[in-house]
């Protein structure tokens, strides 16, 4: 356990040093979200119909932008190799790293989303549902991002390729996430898509680190 804690606190310290990474995603999320009401005819009915897709899209976009640096610096300075050789299990170390990464890049988005959602005239429990949806889906997406970042590690300009790999895997989460928000605004049953998101979140938690670890091993040798 000790080694996980050490890794975790190290990740946090490094993240503070590279605060621009987290901030970029944060600003992007906020800007995309408030841009739509600004540039379109901002009547309540219209904004309420588009809030679901826009929330999901901006979260997807923001997390995608910051993920290129998920393993790259650690790969270059040899930290990943160290982790691989350390006596703790590599898979659980990856999980620790992913969660630390999520705390820095996605948690701020969820906190600010209450503000952005109210720009779209969402109120009361709707905001909570949006935050819950974002919580579940970013927790899933961070594992997908980790996998993609790991598998494209050795490539110099992975941007376009990452998008191509990440889109088909993430698409179901985006669809079901915006479905949840849409249903909660229409006042219909949200349990179906919420179950799906929870299931995907659990699946990515239990399988994601294994897959990411094997992708890293492939990229290393």
């Amino acid at each position: 356990m000790n080694i996980h804690f050490k890794l975790f606190s190290r990740e946090i310290r490094v993240a503070f040093k590279r605060w621009t990474d987290a901030l970029t995603g944060f600003i992007l999320f906020f800007l995309i979200a408030i841009l739509f009401p600004l540039i379109s005819d901002s009547n309540k009915e219209f904004l309420l119909t588009i809030v679901g897709p826009i929330m999901m899209f901006s979260a997807f976009f923001a997390s995608m932008l910051s993920m290129q640096n998920m393993f790259k610096p650690d790969f270059q300075n040899g930290t990943i190799e160290q982790l691989m050789l350390s006596k703790g299990s590599f898979v659980s170390l990856i999980l620790t790293k992913t969660i630390a990464y999520w705390l820095f890049t996605s948690l701020p988005l969820i906190l600010i989303s209450s503000l952005t959602a109210s720009i779209y005239f969402v109120s009361g429990s709707g905001i909570l549902i949006i935050q819950l949806t974002l919580l579940l889906s970013t927790l899933t997406m961070v594992h997908i991002n980790a996998f993609t970042a790991a598998i494209t590690l050795g490539i110099r300009y992975p941007g376009a390729l990452m998008t191509l790999i990440i889109t088909p895997i993430t698409l179901p989460i985006l669809i079901f996430g915006s479905k949840t928000i849409e249903n909660s605004i229409l006042g219909t049953d949200i349990s179906g898509p919420l179950y799906f998101l929870t299931g995907m979140m659990m699946l990515s938690f239990f399988l994601g680190p294994w897959i990411t670890a094997s992708a890293l091993k492939i990229s290393m040798d």
Binding site: S89, Y195, T198, G199, F206, W210
Partner: peptide, 24 residues
Amino acid sequence: GILVTLIGVTVAIALILSSFQDNL
């Protein structure tokens, strides 16, 4: 570790399948 993973995956798949019934 493997046991916990298996249980987690089973629960997750059950959740996803149950959501299929009335969704999308």
